[in-house]
């Protein structure tokens, strides 16, 4: 599965957004804006899920804040780390 699709699946499944479909999440939607109602604990859960699913560690929120901005940003972050 493409990284972006996997990220969307994680967001829906693990953050318990069951009434959402993958196509509802645009690649450049702000994940922590008003649209999805996500908050700080969702952010740390995403950090955990990224580690568990991609083996990529986000060490702190200084690193996490830009990386978790959107599906695009997160996919780019993961790809960069995997390539390194």
């Amino acid at each position: 599965m493409a990284i972006k699709d996997k990220i969307k699946e994680i967001i829906i499944q693990e953050l318990d957004l069951a009434d959402l479909h993958p196509q509802d999440i645009q690649d450049d939607d702000l994940l922590f804006g008003d649209k999805f109602g996500l908050d700080s604990i969702d952010a740390v859960e995403l950090v955990f899920q990224v580690k568990a699913n991609f083996g990529v560690e986000i060490r702190n929120m200084k690193e996490g804040r830009p990386a978790l901005q959107s599906v695009n940003a997160l996919a780019a972050f993961i790809e960069k780390r995997l390539a390194a």
Partner: peptide
């Protein structure tokens, strides 16, 4: 073992 690292599960 793995769930104990999920912040939501832990919380």
């Amino acid at each position: 073992d793995i769930r104990q690292f999920s912040p939501i599960s832990f919380s």
